[in-house]
Nucleic acid binder design. Structure first.
Length: 137
DNA sequence: GCCAACGTTGGC
DNA sequence: GCCAACGTTGGC
């Protein structure tokens, strides 16, 4: 099982909206970047992903689960990009801010800091554990 | 609202 | 296939 991080601006799609979708989940569409697409394609059913709020909040707010593996993104007219379905798994007790991540030397190499513009990122097991602890889980 | 970083596009 | 121009992202 692999770990990931997905980013969304809450004004476009928020954790609260994701939670409201319940077990049915929601297609994670709109990715238009090839590196991010690679990551979407590598996702397996049952993988977990941190849900990060960019711009507003700038914090990891919850954990989502991949419930459907990559398929063509219906919002992409060119047919080049894919999406997956994810459902909210559980919130962090305490959101982990980008500032807190940057302040922790053990997270210096996390993609969230190194490749800040990448919208779908891999997370290592060590990073996953740390962020969960910081989030009170 | 600014600006740095960086991915994508298109002309050559 | 290179590279300049352009657009977008996202933290501050």
């Amino acid at each position: 099982m692999a770990y990931w991080l997905v980013k969304s601006e809450p004004s476009a799609w928020s954790w609260e909206q994701q939670v409201a979708k319940g077990a049915k989940g929601e297609p994670w569409t709109g990715v238009r970047n090839f590196t991010a697409r690679q990551n979407l394609n590598a996702m397996k059913k049952g993988d977990l992903a941190f849900f990060y709020h960019s711009n507003e909040g700038k914090e990891i707010v919850g954990i989502a689960e991949i419930i459907r593996e990559a398929y063509p993104d219906p919002t992409d007219k060119t047919g080049r990009f894919v999406c997956v379905d994810i459902k909210a798994s559980k919130p962090l007790k305490t959101p982990v801010t980008i500032a807190a991540v940057k302040a922790d030397r053990r997270l210096a190499d996390i993609a969230l800091v190194k490749y800040s513009r990448l919208s779908v990122q891999p997370v290592t097991p060590a990073e996953w554990k740390l962020v969960c602890e910081m989030g009170g889980l």
